[in-house]
Design a protein around this nucleic acid. Sequence first.
DNA 1: CGTCTATTTGAATGTACTCAAAAGCGGTGG
DNA 2: CCACCGCTTTTGAGTACATTCAAATAGACG
Lengths: 192, 192
Amino acid sequence: MSQLLINNIQKYVQLNDEEKYMLLSIMQNRKLRKRQYLLQEGDHSKYSAFVLSGCLRSYFVDSNGFEHILQFAIEDWWITDMMSYISGKPGKLNIDALEDSEVLLISREDQLSLFEKSPKFEKYFRIITENGMVSNQQRLLDNLSLPAIERYKNFIQKYPLFMQRIPQVQIAAFLGITPEFLSKIRGQISKS
Amino acid sequence: MSQLLINNIQKYVQLNDEEKYMLLSIMQNRKLRKRQYLLQEGDHSKYSAFVLSGCLRSYFVDSNGFEHILQFAIEDWWITDMMSYISGKPGKLNIDALEDSEVLLISREDQLSLFEKSPKFEKYFRIITENGMVSNQQRLLDNLSLPAIERYKNFIQKYPLFMQRIPQVQIAAFLGITPEFLSKIRGQISKS
DNA sequence: CGTCTATTTGAATGTACTCAAAAGCGGTGG
DNA sequence: CCACCGCTTTTGAGTACATTCAAATAGACG
């Protein structure tokens, strides 16, 4: 199963056997039940997780108790509380499983020592971080420039896979609207 | 003046004289007048810019003609249309100068060849990209979870330097509100 | 089947926008 | 150095998008 990670990396850099071995020997496998936390607010996010199967989310709980979702991660995606992961400080995010899931964990320490051992790993993470940044910027622009109905249509188009497995209440928390309003938007769309 | 860039890099990695020379020999100096474009929508963002002096902004113009600001960059900051810069495709952003400015430009090609020549450069850009991603995520969460007045208060706290030199209409376009509404918020704050 | 959660629907409310106009401010030329 | 012009900020009234709260309906799971 960890072949999924190797393949993901080899989209960007070619690894030799030694490098593959180094990587796999430091990554920890963990299974999560649906609704189980990988990380809770206030924890130090010691690990970054690569999803082998299932679906996780990272989210922030605001002062009124509302959840705001930063990221969904299905198979072949990375997820962590980056802020806490790179700073080593306690984070504000929660990460939990929306489905029974299996992940590979890498600690920041191990990741940095991997970078020292082979620049290929640094290159790989530099590239996926660049890509992640672009996604975040695009999402920010969508939030600034589009009304909720357009953001929802974009979401459907961009992440058709998510639609089939993620409850609407979670999608609303990702789009930045209430579940009630998302329901009204859907009614509006299906009539037109 | 390009010492500013060297110092910025040396916060994260130590460069020897050869590396400094490699870097400086490929960076192009450019002066911009106030209101001058560094990049226009539809262009390929060939360069990433390090600001030596002055202030630039990157922004998106929506279908109604409204501007939404993704980033301000003053001295010691990098700015580009990352999406276009890394993909090589035409971008949707504009970048222009809010003040007379001076920047150092690096092309993506030269940047990548720098990475090949010394992993220190890749490390540096990996780190600042990670940091940029964290800022973007924080901003996204603010937009999702806070009303405009709180976002404005956060902005003042976080970027006191910007307050003194950036017009309110630009700050409104960054916060995702109209200039009229920002003015009303300010009235509200100064009364309390 | 029954319980718990997710979704839909509706009425009242609030945050932020639109449009219009006035006031303030800064740069430029006479 | 002042006057004027253009641009930014303020103010106000009316409106719209999205929320809140409540209740009904539909779905999922043991």
